[in-house]
Design a protein around this nucleic acid. Structure first.
Length: 761
DNA sequence: GCCTCTGGATTTTTT
DNA sequence: ATCCAGAGGC
């Protein structure tokens, strides 16, 4: 039985308990994903359950993707028909199919963060509220929390006491009205919609209960009330619900996740079994000791001991950096050493941080050292203006009632429809009680002077512009059915004049066009999808799956991401940077006990990502936006017994604390790998630099060609990444040469010649 | 209506 | 540092 191969007794039990509710309590690295995947394989291969009847929901797209891949590997074509995806994705699918029963347009759009904010700003303006006094995001987050707890505007209103709650209640109501008018749902509505649907329509509920007879929910501790309700309803009939979770890894309470759902599950499915997975296969004992020291201080937790049969390994290394730049340099140099010693490939290394803003210093260092990296998350591709603009056009083609999209692009490229005209238009539509699109159509088709219609306030020029716009959208709508997504995209770029508009915009038009190329590439993937649903599927994917760049190009690169994003992943070598008070734990958690506990769990999650090497670092000073902060080391570091840390010394010895001040590191302890890595690929991106060839002599090594800089100020040079530039200055440093170059249009960069390929021109 | 300038805020984490 | 809203000039 392939599905049971290589499993320990607990894992085996989890796999074989297929009937009835099951709670799997899975510590980090305990083979959780493996168990889920094998359990599904066991259901299909051994119990003869049709994949069609199995639904596995995860929390993030990344997790869903990984699970799908692993299932494919294990089951192959036999796994065809499995449903694996995030909660939001699965709900969107259900609502597209059956949402009409509760009045949801099958062509609904999903409003992302940006759409929500602009809608809320409009509402605030309409209520004469100053958005500087009432933050749109704060209101939205209050609404989101209410929605996650399944409190509708009425319930919210009833409970509201005081200025702020009453105002939020009013805005909540208006917000929902607007969404309905736009045929739009926000992320929370996807979940609520399914709950309403299931509760309101017994036939539909039964249909889905019969369809998904086997339910698996990963990261159960991160479900919110709405998500739990979906699980409870869907699994209520066949009761084959497998919940997998670990309250020690609950890090999403800010998104209204409620770890108490684990207890609710036990209450609502009293016949459930519990399986504990405690053996860790991921990390060395040394790393687990650190993890345990951190998490054991979390109050009110079940004493749960992680243990492993893995070797002890090397102690974690704690590094104090002078500032964020030096911290980044420490990381990069250490990764360079690991790869040079063939202990690791770049893809074995991950750098984790608390906030996305911290990635910048790391990126700068990585670029300077010419080290390939992959940034996960951060400024998302689909949040770029040009992408959002073009997507807004596509959304309008499918659902012209989406006035957020309409207003976004009705004057992009400029059609001489300014704020004033648009405001008049909105008022005019509101007075008639119709959507913007209806109003525009009336105008364009000359039906705006019918009796009972208020006089059209727009100027002749503005009316003509509107008519033009309506004709454009109608043309695209007419063409849609006969075209692939890519063809439609290209048609739109041409007819709307958007492509020309970008090409002619002086500064960054070129870069934006390039981004559009990426969107075209994405659209091309939908060539084989049924044309009737291709556009809808495409739009849904880009809204729900926002991390386009985690496509795992297969290349060898260092991974950069936040601690949150790292959950569920593992890496042989993990660097956690910025371990300072105010950052990790974050300032916003300092005065909130529960939030502080979550910060601890977050750090715990980070530590337990590491398989064989763990590096912790903090910086003495850190630049925020304008000013420099001096933070004390994170309180979590103090919770780790000193003997578990190699402070300053390293299993993989490193670099000076501040330039020129370093202690010579001890090389002798450095064989961290229990099985050596494959040497890096033939084509090595990292030339072994003379400067670091001998770590012992960081300070004293004389430059090989002392006193002869390769570049002088004024030299014209070329760099693969930055293009052409002129040398500003050059400095010899212990065998290396640091060249400061002013690049055309890229600004001034400091490059290390040992890494960067800088060519004279 | 459109462009440019200025002052203020912005950064926690994600579907 | 960078993005955005509002003001003012063309």
């Amino acid at each position: 039985m392939r599905a049971l191969e290589g499993l320990n007794p607990a894992q085996r039990e989890a796999v074989q308990t297929t009937r009835g509710p099951l709670l799997i309590v899975a510590g980090p690295g305990s083979g959780k994903t493996r168990v889920i995947v094998h359990r599904i394989a066991y259901l299909v291969e051994h119990e003869g359950v049709s994949p069609h009847h199995i639904l596995a929901v995860t929390f993030t797209n990344k997790a869903a993707r990984e699970m799908r891949e692993r299932l494919e590997g294990l089951l192959g074509p036999a796994g065809h028909g499995l449903t694996v995806g995030t909660f939001h994705w699965a709900c969107a699918r259900i609502l597209r199919r059956d949402g009409q029963a509760i009045g949801i347009d099958p062509h609904f759009v999903i409003y992302d963060d940006g759409d929500q904010v602009s809608l809320m700003k409009k509402l605030l303006a309409a209520e004469a509220l100053d958005e500087k006094r009432v933050s749109p995001r704060a209101v939205l987050s209050a609404i989101s929390r209410a929605k996650s707890e399944l409190r509708d505007p009425d319930a919210f209103s009833r409970a509201a006491e005081g200025h702020w709650p009453e105002m939020v209640a009013m805005l909540y109501r208006r917000y929902q009205e607007q969404l309905a008018l736009n045929h739009a749902l926000d992320f929370d509505d996807l979940l609520i919609g399914v709950v309403d649907l299931f509760k309101g329509d017994h036939t539909v509920l039964t249909k889905y209960q019969e369809r998904y007879q086997y339910l698996l929910v990963d990261e159960f501790q991160d479900t919110n009330v709405a998500q739990y309700e979906i699980v409870r309803l869907l699994g209520g009939r066949h009761r084959n619900v497998c919940a997998v979770g670990d309250v020690d890894q609950a890090i999403y309470s800010w998104r209204a996740a409620d770890p108490r759902n684990v207890f609710h599950f036990q209450r609502d499915f009293p016949e459930h079994k519990v399986v504990l997975l405690e053996q860790n296969y991921r990390s060395t004992q040394a790393i687990l000791d650190v993890a345990d020291a951190v998490i054991r201080l979390a109050p009110g937790r079940h004493e749960k001991r992680l243990w492993t049969e893995n070797e002890r390994g090397h102690p974690a290394l704690l590094h104090e950096a002078y500032n964020e730049g030096e911290e980044a340099q420490f990381v990069v140099r250490e990764i360079e050493r690991l790869t040079r010693d063939r202990e690791a490939r770049l893809r074995d290394c991950a750098v984790l941080y608390r906030t996305n803003a911290q990635s910048r210093a790391l990126e700068e260092a990585l670029i300077r050292y010419n080290m390939p990296y992959q940034l996960v998350g951060g400024t998302r591709f689909y949040e770029r203006k040009e992408i959002k603009d073009v997507l807004a056009y596509l959304r309008l083609v499918l659902n012209p009632y989406d006035s957020a999209s309409l207003l976004r692009i009705i004057n992009v490229p400029p059609r001489k429809l300014g704020q004033k005209s648009l405001l008049e238009l909105e008022r005019w539509a509101a007075r008639q009680g119709v959507s913007l699109w209806d109003a525009l159509q009336r105008m364009a088709h000359g039906e705006d002077d019918a009796p009972g219609v208020p006089p059209n306030p727009l100027t002749t020029a503005a009316r003509r512009a509107c008519a033009h716009f309506v004709a454009l959208i109608e043309e695209l709508q007419a063409e849609r059915e006969g075209l692939t997504v890519l063809e439609l995209l290209d048609l739109l770029l041409d007819r709307s004049g958007y492509a020309r508009f970008l090409a002619e915009s002086e500064d960054d038009g070129e870069e934006r066009l390039e981004n559009l190329q990426e969107l075209r590439a994405k659209a091309a993937e939908y060539e084989d999808v049924n044309p009737a649903v291709a556009l809808g599927t495409f739009l849904e994917e880009v809204t729900l799956v926002q991390d386009v760049d985690s496509l795992e190009t297969g290349g060898d690169a260092v991974t950069l991401m936040t601690l949150h994003t790292a959950k569920g992943l593992e890496f042989p070598y993990v660097f956690i940077v910025g371990l300072e008070e105010g950052l990790c734990p974050h300032t916003r958690s300092l005065d909130d006990r529960a939030a502080m506990e979550e910060e601890r769990r977050l750090f715990f999650v980070g530590v337990t990502r590491a398989m064989r090497g763990l590096y912790l670092s903090y910086a003495f000073s850190r630049r925020f936006y304008n000013n420099v902060n001096y933070n004390t080391p994170s309180r979590f570091l103090a919770d780790i017994p000193p003997e578990l840390l190699a402070g300053g010394r390293s299993p993989a010895p490193a670099v000076t604390v501040a330039p020129g001040v370093g202690a010579a590191p001890a090389r002798a302890t450095s064989r961290a790998a229990e099985r050596p890595y494959e040497p890096p690929p033939v084509e090595r991106r990292l030339p072994t630099p003379a400067a670091l060839a001998d770590t012992v002599s960081l300070r004293a090594a004389p430059a090989p060609a002392a006193g002869a800089p390769q570049f002088r100020p004024g030299d014209r040079v070329h760099h693969a990444h930055f293009g052409d530039g002129i040398v500003v200055s050059s400095q010899l440093t212990r065998g290396d040469e640091e060249v400061t170059v002013a690049f055309e249009g890229q600004g001034v960069k400091k490059l290390s010649l040992a890494y960067a390929r800088l060519e004279p021109r």
